[in-house]
Design a binder for these strands. Structure first.
Lengths: 220, 220
DNA sequence: AATTTGAATATTGTATACAATATGCGGAAA
DNA sequence: TTTCCGCATATTGTATACAATATTCAAATT
């Protein structure tokens, strides 16, 4: 019984996964209210597990709850997204520094493979997911599970915003891939200072690429 | 109607506050299971709002939930506490750098007052709370609400461990107060680099003070 | 004796029913 | 017309009842 993969999942968890998926995919748009009875009937469950799922999603930052007013898909302001990028930088900077000394050849190989996968034509749609997996694999050797879980939530919330509001430009994506590759090379050379500097540039560039486009849109 | 302080609170929120308080105060000890029916009857509510409160607390890291097995007060391993201290450093380093340029005389005065209050004889019992308030006031000018909320959770979880396992030594506390004071002075001088360096020393010293004592205890 | 099986019990997960609160609309008063 | 009140409706919050799962402990088998 090494891998008890068929673990007992509760309805609430199931529902939470479904709704999270819809929010991340953009099927549920920011600001949209979630009527409990309606969704419960649609999914074939009662409101009780649905409410617990909503609590979970609220904790993850995907919905906001107000007493007697219900749940709405959490709207992210531009300021909040910028703050999330700053959070990324704070967390990833620390994780990268702690991860590099513990990376092995297996890690580098996996990172290379992920970069290749990102460059594949169908990698475009899965940009958010692949980008996360790259960073996740990169920070796994740091052995900081709590921090990593936190970071995942930050990435997800950023992705949701991206998916909703804007697609990243082709140049932006290519630049991202190049920087990923350089990041791996610096890690291979155990150049912690260099890698941290590049990571900072990488994240702030992504943030600016995004927010600049958003500001232009806001003016139209 | 500027401050609608008597906002409608739900039973679930009330229960969550009560349980959180008990956990932070150490009345509910780490590893202790929480029987839903028992607690619900004691608090005079049904299990439904209690369950929602437990979800909330789980999201905050105070309890862990397992399907069909119930809730237990989350046990914190030494490794996790050390990781929380690292998280503190990652977050607070970024917040401090962003806060210092926006601090005004009012902020400095409030910080001084908090240090005095910490030194008061009755400040001993409220060490955790006062320590948090000092750091909170310090980072408020950074205007990063999401990050600050996250940081509060980290502090709370660390405090819980402290309260439960160990009281900080008198020398440790005094050193902490001195460093708080120096921190304010460096901020007054807008010496960001110096303040960051001291903050790193401050947090790692606190962590080591704690974990060293813990390791000694583990050997007995 | 040690291990296993399985029914009895305890505990959690979910559905249904009811209570409390918010929302929307129509009419009355200014 | 505009504003404000109050009732009707919709929606959320909570209690009770029931179903599903886990735990316990004693008997049976080796």
């Amino acid at each position: 019984m090494a891998d008890d993969t068929i673990l007992k999942r509760t309805m609430a968890e199931e529902v939470a996964d479904i709704l999270r998926g819809r929010i991340l995919a953009g099927r549920l748009k920011a600001g949209e209210p979630i009527r409990q009875e309606h969704v419960a009937k649609e999914l074939g469950v009662s409101r009780i597990p649905l409410r617990e799922a909503l609590s979970q999603l609220a904790a993850e930052g995907f919905v906001t709850l107000a007493a007697h007013k219900g749940a709405v898909v959490a709207p992210l302001s531009l300021a909040e997204v910028e703050e999330l990028f700053e959070l990324r930088l704070m967390l990833e900077d620390g994780l990268l520094a702690r991860a590099i000394p513990h990376m092995g050849e297996g890690d580098f190989a996996m990172l290379d493979a992920l970069i290749d996968e990102s460059r594949a034509p169908d990698g475009l749609k899965r940009w958010g997911e692949l980008n996360w997996r790259f960073h996740e694999v990169m920070y796994l050797p740091a052995a900081r599970p709590v921090t990593l879980k936190l970071l995942r939530r930050v990435h997800d919330n950023i992705d949701r915003y991206l998916r909703l509001e804007i697609a990243m430009s082709a140049e932006g994506r290519n630049r991202g891939y190049r920087e990923h590759q350089e990041l791996v090379e610096l890690a291979r050379a155990r150049d912690i200072a260099g890698a941290r500097k590049l990571l900072a540039k990488h994240i702030t560039a992504t943030a600016e690429n995004l927010t600049a486009t958003l500001k232009v849109r806001a003016e139209t």
